[in-house]
Design a protein around this nucleic acid. Sequence first.
DNA 1: ATTATATACGACAATAATTATCGGATATAA
DNA 2: TTATATCCGATAATTATTGTCGTATATAAT
Lengths: 132, 132
Amino acid sequence: MLKLTRKVEYALIALRHMQDKAPELVSSTKEIATQYNIPLEILAKTLQHLAKENIIEPINGPRGGYRLKAQLGNINLVEFFERVEGPLGLSDCFYDSNCLQIDYCNIRTPIQRINANMINMFRSMTVQDVTS
Amino acid sequence: MLKLTRKVEYALIALRHMQDKAPELVSSTKEIATQYNIPLEILAKTLQHLAKENIIEPINGPRGGYRLKAQLGNINLVEFFERVEGPLGLSDCFYDSNCLQIDYCNIRTPIQRINANMINMFRSMTVQDVTS
DNA sequence: ATTATATACGACAATAATTATCGGATATAA
DNA sequence: TTATATCCGATAATTATTGTCGTATATAAT
Ligand code: SF4
Ligand code: SF4
């Protein structure tokens, strides 16, 4: 409960890896997968996803890879999580309404309050807070 | 990602239900399951669990059920989540160490910092904040 | 041009976590 | 004695997450 997914962790590991280099240098999927012991194919998908989101920039061909494109300090963690994993919330009912209890639920309002606290907390941090 | 489990939600719904009654009145599993449209057997397990944790008190036999035993204002949400669902953390490595990346991970420290923020936030609220 | 290396991407498979069900026991008030 | 309720282990179903495979495309180096 309340855990990050591996995909988010892999993304953060990769971003920090790129951040640690001079900005013009590229990092290949294989290089990152090897260094951090991450399954190559999954990391590849994750990086493709980050590229589609314009967070990193792909360089095709041999000696290719990715390098940072976005300013990590401008992406707060809520935005980042949602761009990587989709909608965020302590309960489904905040972005989807097929909860069987939704019409009778007596905790929805208080949970929403707590959810707002959590969202605010993550929004107060940026990806850079993880990669530095 | 970052969602509560149904079990936790069912527990909170039930606790709020009990809290809304005079303290000496009992609530049966069936009564709660019906009113909130929760699968009976799952709710039963959940309430048995809460009883073992001394959060509610079981009354056996016909006209039985449960009533509140603990002071909900004394149980913070971290404690509650952990008593209902086990150890809490944004990543496994804070309570378990079979993460394949653990020896190479470059984000463990910052994630731990963020985890601490999250834990502090949940610790600053009590079950009563949900049930009132 | 050819080759080797790298990303791109859809479809699929395996695993793990969560959620739900079943069967039969014990306690007790009426 | 009976009906109602909790108790509890075992198991099944479902869903979410995580991982794999095959093939296509791009491009730098030779
Ligand atoms: S309606 Fe209530 S039970 Fe359903 S997801 Fe929202 S908070 Fe949870
Ligand atoms: S070691 Fe790193 S990758 Fe593994 S669980 Fe901890 S933070 Fe996540």
